[in-house]
Simulated scan of single mutants.
Amino acid sequence: MEISVSTGLYYTKGYKEILDIIASTSCRNIELFLNQAFIDIDVLELQNEVSKRNLNVLSIHTPLEFIAFPRRESEQYWINKSIEISKILGSKLIISHMVLGEYFDERISSLDDLHKENMINYCSIEDIHITSENLPKFNGGSFLGRVDELFEFVTENNIDLTFDTTHCAFSGYPILETFMKFKSHVKNIHISDFDNGNEHKVLGEGNLPLKDFITHLKKEMYDGIMTIELDLDNKKRNNITSTKQAIAAIQKSIDYIENNIR
């Protein structure tokens, strides 16, 4: 298992500051989340800045819909672009789930159907895993929030999955049992804590049984990526008000994992 930290910690800071914060922890691996801070950075410039900080890009998360769709950029566009970025940065996994929001092409009647089509079309690419991700469950929301429907899709089409603990908890599903259901398809885990409706909390600061979850992953010899995905912008989720606190919060989450896999 390789531990990684998502650059999606912040949407409001510059990309160099986000990389500096992660580089100040003991983790050397990152998931490149292409939010506002990273979406328009030249990939060679990004490669240089990542290398300068002795970091490695293990995975790439495509932009969310509210960023990409106003730019008239589709999920297919960003999967292709992420593949090209992966070739330069050496990452082996991509996460994509553009299934929400108002699409710029009115010919597309269902973003769920388009996402399914994209996942099927890209699932056999060599040397890189294109993964979907379970999302929070909402009435009338995406199939990615409905466990049984998502399970049927990934098993019938041999789709790789990024399993998100806090999305699973938000939907009311037990994280360990749900992970075990999808285990053979999971290549990446987005791990964060959850409490009272608040997602993406620092590990150990919510009410999820993360200790048991991590211990079970070790027992199951899970050999994928475990990506710490926190939200340090939203003060309701994590009351982080300084760079020093941000570094400490990330390090606390890293230590939480490492202390439970020894």
Rank of each mutant, 00 (worst) to 15 (best):
E2I: 12
I3P: 04
Y10V: 09
D20W: 01
S24N: 08
C27T: 09
R28D: 06
N29L: 08
E31N: 11
Q36I: 07
I39A: 06
V43S: 09
E45H: 13
L46I: 10
V50E: 02
S51M: 13
H61Q: 15
T62G: 01
E65A: 11
F69G: 02
P70G: 13
S74Q: 05
N80Y: 02
S82V: 00
I83V: 10
E84Y: 03
I85L: 14
K87R: 13
I88S: 03
I88D: 07
I94D: 02
I95H: 03
S96P: 00
S96N: 05
H97D: 04
E106N: 14
L111K: 06
L111F: 04
L114N: 05
D127N: 15
I128E: 01
I128C: 02
E133K: 01
K137W: 00
F138C: 00
L144Y: 06
G145H: 10
R146W: 00
D148I: 00
E149P: 02
N158L: 07
I159K: 02
F163A: 03
P174G: 07
I175C: 08
T178P: 06
K183P: 05
K187A: 03
N188S: 08
E199F: 14
E199G: 07
H200G: 12
E205S: 12
F213P: 08
T215F: 08
K219N: 11
D223N: 15
M226F: 02
K236H: 11
R237E: 15
A248M: 06
I261L: 11
